[in-house]
Write a protein that binds this DNA or RNA. Structure first.
Length: 880
DNA sequence: CGCTCCCGCCATGCC
DNA sequence: GGCATGGCGGGAGCG
């Protein structure tokens, strides 16, 4: 390409002479090149780096020779340049003619040729993705720079980003150690966790605040102690190694890179627009956002994005929002990480969902739990030592889901420890920071949120809430459901999900997207009444309680099982999971059907999961009346989970109960047809919409929300019948036989809105996975289900926030749920719904009141997608 | 015209 | 003072 371009390009503008030509060289051999630089280069070598090459490099690096090289390179450059001109035959030809031009032209690689992304590819081509643990590869900045024919400054850009992902670590001055992607999954997981914490907390905090205080404004003020936040990410060496590594101040690029990645990992949709990311990053860093700063941030993000793109972790996409089309990046890297998910994995093929990078997935859940602690100790990513360690780890820990996974678990040691540290740090910071509303708002946005300013919580949850789509692992589910997105929506093939899920998402999401805040999906038994359901969130419920409605809900819950406020969460959780899943997808504008699964169970692990499960079960039940069995199973599990989950409460990962897997599987198998009721929110709050599964046990619905307590938002339960009218319709009636009646009557599910938020978190928890209780008798287990939720909520609360975000993670587990839901989801309704606000694009929930609107909005999917954005925007604008 | 983002000045810090 | 790092933003390439 280069050659071509050059030939072509060159003519255009003779630019300065640049060494760049080297690019051709891409390649390889550093030293050699010196002498005969040019031509060699031509082919990039993928392979290139043979062990030998590495050795050479190392050697060179080690030795003072390096310097020499530099010298050489300098020398070379000229040479190369001259040669280059020669080199390319074609070029020459073209160029040659014009003598004058020649020089310039040749040299002048087009801008593209010089792009950081291309440069990064060349850089990466030199090193193996999965280097043998034994070999260490050292990278000499000077060498690389000379080889690649670029200034060292550029190499710093690349290396800093790579370092943020621990693909390399700095060993010494000019020296970096290449680790390859062995640790990538772990690192990503860490980032995900950290992201959840940060953002999650924020969210939670926001919610809280909101609940407490405002709905609109103040939250942000809240404060933000962000400064520290950034630090959070620093893997850099806490302990280990030389502090030297850290030296610089913040190294914004590195931190930014991590944060940027975190946004993706937290985002349901996996799509992050640059502007949103910039806003978030800026906010974290600073309150003030000048335009100039914004621009600068965006520039940096491009730099980072180019590197990440070269790594195959993200890809450029465009999100179309109301305002227009915005550049965005979609995460195409591994989404799921081992974590706890073992369980999940087991049962759910969902693992499939793992995106392309399977490798990524590995994280053992253990790591999450244990890991953190451990990690705490270590911490330093950077440390030179790490390299080795990491390698080892790597070897041991496999990251990749499949292969690597094993290793991963092991790894946890150092790397994980480091990671953990970060996470821990982040948490703390986050917690601290959390206070600041702004952040939270912002952060949340990422994927999650959609919440409009007002309904913060709600919103957030909602967005995601869209129906979960399950990726389809189990088609059966989806279909059954009336809604089934799948069925109805062709768009989402389950399969697609598997990948990242994303793909499909956008456009057609099978899932339903609700306006961000506006909708909630609930699954649960509806028994009681239809009424409102405010759900108390589990822990926090209070908020919910705040609202009058809550009581009923509570009762319901209690009846169901929700006993504790927290408990209620369960039901919700599941829903939440779904939502979360959806959300992820949605993030930007679209919802993607991805697989929900994965995620992380970390945060609220068990409990969440369980909750999720419940939901699922519920859904299932609802969906398929027939399926009660499954439901039961699930339900039971959930219970267990709950118990477990409680323990785990903290986000730390609980153990993932094996059960979950089963459940999920079961679910999948089962024909559930979840029915959902969609409730539109009253105008008030942002209107939340709830979807309930028809049959679920009431208990299930309960919210976990804990954090969200605030949700008090008025939610309206709509009888299935009512729903029918809605676009959503599918959910309600069709499927489920049961449901209808139940709906109408029961509609009241308990769930706390707030829980929603929490809910998501719940999902995460491994537990959730485990337990899906049986929905059939939703009521039956109320406790259990509830518990899970509760667990989550209480513990989570803080974490919860994170959780929410995370929820997506949960998704993985939840997968089953997703499936169920999806069906309906497809419905789009959400999208449709959206219409109400544009701004809302995210979400404003309430806005839609009319069904019609919903329909209209379909197009809006996008809006769903960018929850973050929404949030951001919303915040500014007030939601309706 | 606006999105991208290259390029390199220059600040920061360590030695 | 020199060198390694890397923040930063002007302004150009490109679609």
């Amino acid at each position: 390409e280069n050659i071509f371009d050059r030939s072509r390009m060159a003519p255009k503008t003779p630019i300065k002479n640049e060494p760049i030509d080297l690019s051709k060289q891409k390649g390889c051999t550093p030293e050699r090149n010196p002498i005969t630089p040019v031509k060699i280069i031509d082919r990039p070598q993928p392979d290139p780096w043979t062990p030998t090459a590495n050795l050479k490099i190392l050697v060179s690096a080690a030795s003072p020779d390096m310097r020499d090289r530099e010298k050489k390179k300098e020398l070379f450059r000229p040479i190369e340049n001259s040669e280059q001109s020669d080199t390319p035959d074609s070029l020459q030809y073209d160029i040659v003619d014009d003598s004058t031009v020649d020089e310039f032209e040749k040299q002048r690689p087009s801008r593209k040729q010089k792009s950081l992304g291309l440069l990064c590819q060349k850089f990466l081509a030199r090193y193996p993705n999965y280097p043998l643990s034994t070999e260490k590869t050292t990278i000499s900045l000077d060498e690389v720079a000379s080889i690649l024919g670029v200034e060292r400054r550029r190499i710093y850009d690349i290396v800093n980003v790579l370092e943020s992902l621990q693909l390399v670590s700095r060993v010494a001055k000019n020296q970096y150690c290449w680790h390859g992607r062995h640790n990538l999954s772990q690192t990503l997981k860490m980032l995900q966790d950290a992201g959840e914490l940060q953002y999650g907390e924020l969210m939670t905090s926001q919610h809280r605040e909101q609940d407490l205080e405002y709905k609109f404004g103040e939250r942000k003020k809240a404060i933000i102690p962000d400064s520290q936040d950034r630090t959070l990410l620093d893997f850099s060496e806490p302990d280990c190694v030389s502090a030297s590594a850290n030296s610089r101040k913040d190294k914004s690029l590195r931190i930014m890179s991590q944060k940027f990645v975190m946004l993706f990992l937290v985002s349901k949709t996996k799509i992050v627009t640059l502007d949103i990311a910039a806003k978030i990053l800026i906010e974290e860093t600073q309150d003030t956002v000048d335009h100039s700063k914004f621009k600068t941030k965006v520039r940096r993000l491009y730099d980072i994005a180019n590197v990440l793109t070269s790594l195959g972790l993200i890809k450029k996409v465009h999100v179309t929002e109301e305002r227009g089309r915005k550049p965005a990046f979609k995460w195409i890297g591994p989404v799921e990480f081992p974590e706890n998910t073992d369980d999940l994995r087991g049962h759910s093929p969902a693992s499939n969902p793992l995106p392309e990078t399977q490798r990524g997935a590995c994280a053992p859940y253990q790591t999450s739990t244990a890991g953190k602690q451990r990690l705490t100790r270590h911490a330093s990513f950077n440390s030179a030592q790490p390299c080795e360690a990491t390698k080892r780890k790597v070897s041991s820990e496999p990251n990749s889901p499949h292969q690597e996974r094993q290793a991963c678990s092991v790894n946890s040691d150092k790397n994980s420890s480091k990671m953990i540290n970060l996470a821990a740090v982040c948490r703390q910071k986050i917690e601290e920071d959390t206070g600041s509303a702004k952040k939270s708002n912002i952060t949340l946005p990422v994927s999650l949120l959609s919440v409009p300013g007002d309904s913060d919580f709600c919103v957030n949850p909602l967005p995601q809430a869209v129906f979960p789509v399950v990726q389809a692992d189990v088609p059966s589910f989806s279909l059954p459901v009336g809604i089934s997105s799948q069925a109805s929506n062709p768009s989402m093939p389950p399969a697609s999900k598997t990948e990242n899920g994303k793909p499909t998402l956008l456009p057609n999401q099978p899932f339903l997207c609700f306006p961000s805040s506006s909708l909630f999906m609930l699954c649960g038994g509806l028994q009681e009444n239809n009424m409102s359901e405010p759900l108390p969130t589990a822990g926090d419920l209070g908020s919910r309680s705040a609202e009058a409605q809550a009581p009923t809900v509570c009762q319901k819950r209690s009846s169901q099982k929700c006993s504790s406020p927290a408990a209620p969460g369960d039901d919700e959780e599941p829903a939440a999971k779904k939502q979360t899943l959806e959300h992820r997808d949605l993030p930007l504008s679209l919802v993607v059907p991805k697989k929900p699964e994965s995620p992380k169970a970390e945060s609220s692990p068990g409990s969440d999961c369980s909750a999720a499960v419940h939901l699922q079960t519920n859904h299932l039940d609802l969906a398929s009346p027939a399926a009660p069995e499954t439901a039961n199973k699930e339900s039971t599990k959930p219970l267990d989970c709950q118990e477990q989950g409680k323990q785990s409460q903290k986000k730390v990962p609980d153990d993932p109960p094996p059960g979950n897997e089963h459940i999920s599987k079961e679910n999948a198998n089962q024909p559930f047809q979840p029915q959902y009721l969609y409730v539109q929110p009253t105008a008030g709050l942002s209107s939340f919409n709830f979807l309930f599964s028809a049959n679920q046990a009431p208990g299930a619905i309960s919210l976990a929300a804990n954090q969200m307590p605030s949700l008090s938002v008025p939610c309206v339960m709509v009888p299935s019948a009512a729903l029918a009218s809605f676009p959503l319709v599918p959910f309600t009636s069709p499927l489920s036989p049961v449901p209808d009646s139940s709906f109408s009557a029961a509609a009241s599910t308990n769930f706390s809105v707030s829980s929603l938020a929490s809910a998501t978190p719940v999902f995460r928890s491994s537990t959730a996975v485990v337990t899906p209780k049986v929905s059939a008798a939703p009521s039956a287990d109320p406790q259990q289900p509830a518990h899970p939720a509760l667990h989550l909520s209480p513990v989570l609360t803080r974490s919860c926030s994170a959780v929410k975000l995370d929820s997506p993670v949960c998704m993985g587990h939840p997968v089953t749920l997703l499936k169920l839901q999806q069906p309906s989801s497809a419905p789009l309704t959400p999208k449709n719904i959206r219409p109400a606000h544009h701004e809302a694009f995210f979400k404003t929930p309430g806005s839609f009141g009319d069904p019609a609107a919903w329909k209209k909005n379909e197009g809006t999917q996008t809006r769903n997608a960018s929850s973050v954005q929404r949030r951001l925007e919303i915040s500014s604008t007030s939601p309706d």
